[in-house]
Simulated assay, not measured.
Amino acid sequence: MTEASTAPTPTESDGQPVLSARNVVKHFPVHGGGILQRKVGDVHAVCDVSFDIHPNETLGLVGESGCGKSTTARVVLNLQPATGGEVLFQGANLNSLSAKEMRSLRRSLQIVFQDPYASLDPRLPVNEIIAEPLRIHGLYGADGPERVRELLDTVGLRPEHGNRFPHEFSGGQRQRIGIARALALEPKVLVLDEPVSALDVSIQAGVLNLLQDLQSRLDLSYLFVSHDLSVVRHIADRIAVMYLGKIVETAPAEELFQRPTHPYTQALISAIPVPDPRKERTRERIVITGDVPSPSDPPSGCRFRTRCPKFANQLTEGQRTLCVEQEPELVDHGHGHPSACHYAEEAHLL
C-alpha cells in the first residue's frame, strides 16, 4: 500500500469550504524554575477560533504582533498540534490523522514564510530548493528539471536564476522563490504568513499582484496573515480581525473598512494614513492606550476592555460591569456581520 492510499480522500462539493477551523484552541504550557520544572500555567495563544475558506477565496487574518495569528496559521496546517477543536480540509479532520496520513495531504496545504532570508537553505542552488518538495514526495522524475523551470517562469524569474544561490537575490526575488517552492506540489491552499512584511513597499506591490494572478490562474485559496490592514485590504475577499487569541470581528473586506463595528477594528482602521492631506488632518483618530495583556492571564469578560476607548470614556458603570463579567460572543448585532462586542456600533472612518 502506498502512502497516498492511507489518508482519507477529501471530497469537493460546490459551495463547501475547502478549509475550515472549528473552535480551534492552542495553549502552550508555562513551567516554573527549579529542578522539577513543574507546569505553573498556560499561554492562551489561540482561543476558540473558527473560520471557513472557500475555493479561490482569500481570508485575511489581521491583528497586532502577539495576537496569535501566526500560531493559528501553523495549527491550521497541523505544523503544531491543536490543544482543542478541529481543522477540516475538504472534510478530512487533520487533527485525527497520523503523520503518515498527513504527509500525503501536505501536497495540498503549503506555506510561504515571512522571512525570505531565513526560509531558504543558503547551501542549495535555487533549482534544488524548488525541486526539494518534489523529491520528498517522489514526484521528481525525468520531467523534474522542466517542472522547476516552469515554476521559475510562473513566479516571474528566468531559468538561469535556478543555478544561483539565495544570497545572490533581493528580498522580493527570494520571496518569489519561496512561492515557487510552495507551488511545486500544486496545492489547493496556501498559507501566507506575513509574506510581504520584510519587503520594501515598492516590492510589496509586485509580490501581491503576483499572488493575485496565481490565485486566478491556479484556483488557489489563501489564508493571508498580516498585521497591515492596508495590505490585507488589497488582496483579501474577507477579513477576520484577531485580538489576544480570539477573532473579534469578521466581514467582507470592503464592508469591514466602510462599516467596522468593534472598537479594536475601528482603532486599527483609524490608524491607516489617508493620501488626501486635508482629509487626513480632519479625520477622527481612535487611540488605544495601555499594553496588551498577558496571554497567560487574559482579562475576564471582554479581553479588549482594558484598552477599549469606549469602555473607558463612553459606557456607564452598569454597562462596564457587563464587559467585565461576560465575554461577548462573535455574533451579528444587526450590522450585517459578526462582532464580539456587547455595544457594537458602526463607525465611518475612511
Rank of each mutant, 00 (worst) to 15 (best):
K69I: 00
S70D: 11
S70H: 09
S70E: 14
T72C: 03
A73R: 05
A73K: 01
A73E: 08
A73F: 06
A73Y: 13
R74S: 14
R74D: 14
V75S: 04
V75Y: 05
V75C: 08
V76K: 06
V76G: 08
V76R: 04
L77T: 10
N78T: 06
N78A: 10
L79Y: 09
Q80E: 14
Q80T: 14
Q80P: 03
Q80N: 09
Q80S: 10
P81R: 05
P81N: 04
T83R: 03
T83Q: 10
G84N: 08
G84F: 08
G85F: 05
E86N: 12
E86P: 01
F89W: 10
Q90Y: 02
Q90N: 13
G91D: 15
A92L: 00
N93Y: 07
L94N: 12
L94S: 11
L94G: 13
N95L: 03
S96R: 14
L97C: 11
S98L: 00
S98D: 02
S98W: 04
S98R: 00
A99K: 11
A99T: 07
A99F: 02
K100T: 15
K100A: 13
E101V: 10
M102P: 08
R103D: 05
S104H: 02
L105K: 01
R107A: 14
R107G: 08
R107L: 13
S108H: 15
S108F: 13
I111Y: 10
I111Q: 07
I111R: 03
I111K: 01
I111F: 11
V112S: 06
V112Q: 04
F113W: 11
F113P: 00
F113A: 10
Q114M: 02
D115T: 13
D115E: 15
D115V: 15
P116H: 14
P116S: 07
Y117S: 02
Y117E: 01
Y117G: 00
A118T: 15
A118S: 15
S119F: 12
S119P: 09
S119C: 11
L120K: 03
D121R: 07
D121P: 09
P122M: 10
P122G: 12
P122W: 14
P122N: 07
P122E: 09
P122S: 13
L124N: 08
L124E: 12
P125G: 11
V126H: 06
E128Q: 15
I129S: 07
I130L: 09
A131I: 13
A131H: 11
A131Y: 09
E132S: 11
E132P: 04
